[in-house]
Amino acid sequence: MQITDVGLIKLAAGLTMALGSFGPAIGIGMAVSKAMEAIGRNPEAEGAIRTTMILGAGLAEAVAIYALLIAIILALVVGG
């Protein structure tokens, strides 16, 4: 198998997604674990904690979405 430019671009797209979702995954995991801890300590505040957690998870997830966008652009627009 030959190494071509298009192949390298597709590889870059896959790597972008793999590396780019690394951080947000850790971030969302930490947010959820802390939120569960907080609910365990203070069950009355469950509603407020859940809303804030979903907001924070959405913000962290956006970073993965940036990576996904770059990957899509690489794979569809640059790589053709």
Partner: peptide, 16 residues
């Protein structure tokens, strides 16, 4: 940039 790309990326990625 972050406000616009976040919303666009989420909806576009969801469609895809």
């Amino acid at each position: 940039i972050s406000l616009s790309v976040r919303l666009f990326g989420n909806i576009f990625a969801g469609e895809t």
